Amino acid sequence: MQKQKKSRLKLMHQYYKYTGFYSFIWQNTKKALIPLAVIVGILLYVNYKVMNINDMLLHVTKNFSDFSIFTLFFISESILGLLPPDIFIAWTKSTESPLLYLSILAVLSYLGGVFSYYKGRTLLLIPKINNYLEGRMTKHIKNMQKWGGFLIAVGALLPLPFAIACLAAGMIKFPQKQFFIFASLRVFRFVIYGYLIYTALS
């Protein structure tokens, strides 16, 4: 039984290697790390040369309602991840209940992915929009068909376009129960990044 299990894992490894899954992760992670490094660099520069980041985030907290910030974040996470989640994670540190607010962000991000998934399924019913998206997202759809849940998991955990992975999953009608399980890994990203960002801003 153990031998059979190992050989199955080996076959999976060979499949993902042959289909370029590992290369895809590496190339896209490199692309994602560049803007992330730029954002971190800007934050560090602003923190030491212009204005203390904690003071700036406190200013944002005082001048914008929590609801408006959460709404902006949810919209971003639902529409192709327009804004980096890390900025919002940094904002939670300046709030009265950082862990609670970080948890809310994690849930909203997950729900944003769920929204994108159902958006993908719904848009299939509108021929013109479906044809347009299939043309624009051919590569993502093919990758989702090849790698399925693992691609969703990678999008959830790494600095990759989570919303796009969820949209593609919806467009190929990826099984709902499996989608919910893989997408829930998104929460762990906020735990890890929250710890790193909180430590950096301490």
Rank of each mutant, 00 (worst) to 15 (best):
K3T: 12
K10P: 00
L11N: 15
Y16I: 12
G20P: 06
G20A: 09
F21K: 07
F21M: 09
Y22C: 09
F24Y: 14
W26V: 13
W26Q: 05
Q27I: 15
N28C: 14
N28M: 11
T29D: 03
K31W: 14
K31N: 14
K31V: 08
K31D: 06
A32N: 11
L33N: 13
P35E: 12
V38K: 10
I39P: 03
V46G: 11
I53L: 15
L57Y: 10
T61D: 11
F64L: 12
S65L: 09
S65V: 10
S65W: 05
F67D: 15
S68V: 14
F70W: 10
L72C: 11
L72F: 11
F73M: 02
F74A: 08
I75V: 15
S78R: 05
I79D: 02
L80D: 07
L82V: 12
L83F: 14
P84K: 04
P85I: 04
P85R: 00
I89K: 00
W91D: 02
W91S: 04
T92D: 08
K93N: 06
E96K: 14
L99A: 03
L99Y: 05
L102S: 01
S103F: 10
L105S: 02
V107G: 00
L108C: 05
S109I: 04
S109K: 02
Y110L: 12
Y110I: 04
V114C: 01
K119A: 10
G120P: 00
G120Y: 02
R121T: 05
L124F: 01
L125I: 11
K128H: 08
N130I: 02
N130T: 05
N131C: 08
G135R: 05
G135M: 08
G135H: 10
R136T: 11
M137A: 15
K139H: 15
K142A: 15
M144G: 02
Q145A: 08
K146H: 06
G148R: 02
G149L: 06
F150N: 07
L151K: 00
I152V: 08
A153Y: 04
A153Q: 01
V154R: 01
L158C: 09
F162K: 09
F162M: 11
I164W: 05
C166H: 01
L167W: 05
A168W: 03
A168L: 07
M171T: 03
K173P: 03
K173I: 13
K173D: 14
K177T: 04
Q178L: 14
A183P: 00
S184Q: 03
R189I: 05
G194W: 00
L196R: 08
L196N: 09
I197L: 07
I197Y: 01
A200R: 01
A200G: 08
S202F: 07
S202N: 09
